[in-house]
């Protein structure tokens, strides 16, 4: 079942085209990574999914038009738009009271159990908590909501690695199951690639690549060419070439692994490598997602 189904989404801000006809599908029970450079259209796409911005084209989220039925949709969809958007003046206890008051699917006892595992003092103002604690609190609130879709837009930006790891660990262990769906964007691609089930690359308002993770491993191969084999390897039609530690690394799509193995060491590419191969050459700036 499709939780998000988008067909031909378009959105322009004046002369700037943020989404140039996006087709995007996320199925139930998946953890879908949305990866792109700054300004690629990630946040615009997520805002459209969340009903925060209107756009042209067809879009259904949990069976609803998100722009027309946003208030209703927010019972089934949760989002963490950024780190530290929780109101700083609010006490942790008040935040629990408020969400329990307005959200019909919020399980307060569950949220309190999550918070009890952290060092967050329940009587403190959110503004007095560390950035990592605010992220933990937001995650605790969101995980206690029985939602069908959770959207995370750079949820761990600016957190140190320990918090980032804990964040994704608890998401996976305490929250995710086959009835839930998560869409996540992040700059730290390597850190989340092991939890993703699907990935989509977006560039300049277009989807340039979308695939389940297991297909990436079976369909893409990276060859670290042994000296002397470079011409033979190039003849097999690599989609990307780069240099690392004095060796040439070639990336292949749907190539015969046994033939590659004769020319050097073969391994499955990381997401960041694949992203660079597919986007890096098109982009004017070279940084990974």
């Amino acid at each position: 079942m499709a939780i998000i189904e988008a067909r031909g989404l378009r959105k322009a801000f004046g002369p700037t085209i943020a989404l140039a006809g996006v087709d995007f599908r996320v199925d139930e029970g998946r953890i879908h990574g949305l990866i792109g450079l700054n300004g690629a259209g990630k946040t615009t796409l997520l805002n459209a999914v969340l009903g925060l911005t209107p756009c042209e084209g067809r879009l259904a989220v949990v069976g609803r038009d998100p722009w027309e039925r946003r208030d209703d949709l927010m019972r089934d969809v949760c989002f963490v738009a950024d780190v530290a958007v929780l109101p700083r003046w609010m006490r942790v206890r008040n935040a629990l009271d408020y969400v329990a008051g307005v959200h019909p699917r919020f399980d307060r006892a569950k949220a309190e159990r999550f918070i009890a595992r952290t060092d967050i003092p329940i009587g403190k103002r959110i503004g007095k908590l560390s950035k990592g604690m605010v992220a933990q609190l937001h995650l605790a609130l969101v995980m206690a909501i029985d939602a069908k879709l959770l959207v995370l837009d750079e949820p761990t930006l600016g957190l140190d690695i320990l918090f980032r790891k804990q964040f994704y660990d608890s998401l996976l262990n305490d929250y995710f199951d086959e009835r839930r769906t998560i869409v996540v964007t992040t700059h730290q691609v390597e850190e989340i690639q092991h939890i993703l089930t699907d990935v989509t690359f977006i560039h300049k308002g277009r989807i340039v690549y979308s695939s389940p993770m297991e297909a990436i491993e079976s369909r893409h191969a990276e060859l670290s060419v042994r000296a002397g084999n470079l011409e033979a390897a190039r003849a097999l039609g690599p989609i990307h070439e780069r240099q690392a530690l004095g060796r040439t690394i070639l990336l292949f799509h749907d190539a015969d692994r046994e033939r590659l193995a004769a020319l050097g060491e073969v391994r499955s590419p990381g997401l960041a490598d694949l992203f660079l191969a597919l986007i890096g050459d098109r982009a004017s700036t070279g940084a990974a997602a």
């Binding site: 969340l50 208030d71 949760c78 963490v80 929780l86």
Partner: peptide, 17 residues
């Protein structure tokens, strides 16, 4: 105020019109 401190993104994540 909630646009200035970005907490609007939290308020808008709740089922409140």
């Amino acid at each position: 105020g909630d646009r200035r401190d970005r907490s609007i993104l939290f308020w808008k994540s709740m089922p409140v019109s």
